[in-house]
Nucleic acid binder design. Sequence first.
DNA 1: ACAAACTTTCAGAAATAATTGAAAATATAA
DNA 2: TTATATTTTCAATTATTTCTGAAAGTTTGT
Lengths: 164, 164
Amino acid sequence: MELTEARQKFIQGWGQLGASWGINRTMAQIQAVLLLATDPMSTDDIMADLQISRGNANMNIRELIAWGIVYKAFKPGDRKEYYYSEKSMWELAKKVSRERKKRELEPLLKMLDEVKSVKGSSAEAKEFKKVAQETRSMASRAESVLDMVMKLEENRFFKWLLPK
Amino acid sequence: MELTEARQKFIQGWGQLGASWGINRTMAQIQAVLLLATDPMSTDDIMADLQISRGNANMNIRELIAWGIVYKAFKPGDRKEYYYSEKSMWELAKKVSRERKKRELEPLLKMLDEVKSVKGSSAEAKEFKKVAQETRSMASRAESVLDMVMKLEENRFFKWLLPK
DNA sequence: ACAAACTTTCAGAAATAATTGAAAATATAA
DNA sequence: TTATATTTTCAATTATTTCTGAAAGTTTGT
């Protein structure tokens, strides 16, 4: 397969994956482009590559930087900003987990906490308490698993898991 | 807090969570309603509860059934269909993982496989191969972790993880 | 200070996704 | 079979999200 075609498929697939995780498709595609780049790219490079507008490119690059998975670079004698992606898949996964934990798990736990004090002893109220309690317990467990995995070193954990 | 208010917050929060996971908000809310219900509910019950149309209710109930997290029930002498949710959080988590694995991880791995045969020895081609390989490796690992966790019994795994 | 190079913002346009409601299809009972 | 209850479908509408492009803002060099 030609590099051009392969690249296209990779970028598409990555965008698709992002989309089904609630991440803007273009944001994911920019990340894919930077992941495949050998050198930092300027906004114009990215605009040309993905055929998108300046505003769109700028917004999504900024968002990637906010997620901590894309960094800025500068070239001497050039005032453009250049961008490059975090290349370690492990680091990437960790940063994405951290961000999603903050954005989703934490608000959920907060809500479950607020709702804990529900009054009443009807069947509905009892069921509510039970479900809320189980949800809280599942969410905390998920959080613990994430914390644990995030702290582990790649090799230590996965070599044990997948000795091959 | 009153049950009505708490219920509202739970349903809202659940819908929010679903939305950031690429799941239709209404679908997630219906699931929340059924999770909190003490008895199976009809389409009309759900329509009334969430103030949504019949078409919308029907489509999303069907989708929940396809995910394997909502079941049908019938009452003797009544030809309406009733629906109830899987109530075990653990079962729920397992079914959702299984579904997402099928919908996201598998297509990704398929794409990475197709793209494996990329030609060329330029810096770009080399980088492409490296990134594709690392992505494949990370995706397989994720799949293994999911498979592993999905096979474990709730207590066995989590009691060890969280002894408290 | 001025001008050039570059980045950011944001109102409106375009694209995408979700929802409605009524008609069609299907199932059940008499 | 026929009438009735119920579920499903889907074209049209509405809501939401994303994208554009030009203007405003910022930084840097002279």
